[in-house]
Computed example of a mutant assay.
Amino acid sequence: MCLAVAGELIEISEHSDPLWRMGEVSFGGVLRQVSLACVPEARVGDQLLVHVGVALTVLEPER
């Protein structure tokens, strides 16, 4: 069974190669470095779905 967790993108570390783009993500106050290679559209403040250190998708805000 796999588990993906939602977290808020706090900071982005840009890189000349988009595959090495990283972000600092807050999971309820716990900060982790996450790869943003799969979500080039991610911006600071977005909620991301993260699995094993890789952001898989940007979550849509609830209405």
Rank of each mutant, 00 (worst) to 15 (best):
L9W: 02
T57A: 13
Q47S: 08
T57M: 09
V25S: 02
G23D: 02
R63L: 09
A55H: 03
G45W: 03
L9E: 07
E60I: 05
E11A: 05
G29S: 07
L36A: 11
V52D: 12
G29K: 11
P18L: 07
P61V: 07
A4I: 06
V5Q: 14
V39R: 00
G7S: 10
C2E: 13
G29N: 08
E14I: 00
P61E: 11
Q47P: 02
H15S: 15
L9Q: 00
V52S: 07
L56G: 15
E41T: 07
L36M: 03
T57L: 05
H15L: 01
E11C: 14
H51N: 06
D46H: 02
C38G: 05
S26V: 10
V5L: 10
F27R: 10
P18H: 09
C38W: 06
C2K: 15
S13V: 03
E8S: 03
H15P: 02
V5A: 08
H51S: 08
A4P: 06
V54Q: 14
G7A: 15
V44G: 03
R43M: 09
G53P: 13
T57D: 04
R63K: 14
P61C: 11
Q47W: 15
L9D: 08
E60M: 08
L3A: 13
L19V: 09
V30D: 15
L36F: 09
A6D: 07
L9A: 11
D17K: 06
G23T: 03
V39E: 01
V44Q: 15
S26G: 05
M22I: 06
E60C: 13
P61Q: 14
I12W: 00
P18Q: 05
H51Q: 13
C2G: 13
E8A: 14
W20F: 05
H15V: 04
S13T: 09
E60A: 10
G29H: 08
I10L: 06
P61S: 11
S16K: 05
W20C: 07
L36V: 12
I10C: 01
E41P: 01
V25Y: 01
I12C: 05
D17H: 07
L31V: 10
M22A: 08
E62S: 11
R43H: 10
D46E: 06
P40A: 02
V50L: 04
G53S: 07
L59A: 04
G53R: 03
M22E: 11
I12S: 02
A37Y: 05
G28N: 14
G23E: 02
V39T: 09
R63C: 03
R21Y: 00
V39S: 04
V52W: 12
G23M: 02
A4G: 15
A6F: 02
D46F: 00
V58N: 03
T57Y: 00
M22H: 15
L3V: 12
R21V: 00
V52C: 13
L49G: 13
A37F: 04
A55K: 02
L59D: 06
H51A: 06
V34A: 04
S35N: 12
Q47V: 12
C38V: 01
I12Y: 00
L56V: 04
F27M: 14
L19P: 03
E62K: 14
V39K: 03
S13Y: 09
Q33S: 10
H15M: 10
V5Y: 15
A6T: 12
G23P: 02
A37M: 11
V5H: 09
S26A: 10
R63E: 09
P18E: 03
L9C: 05
V30W: 14
R32M: 07
T57W: 03
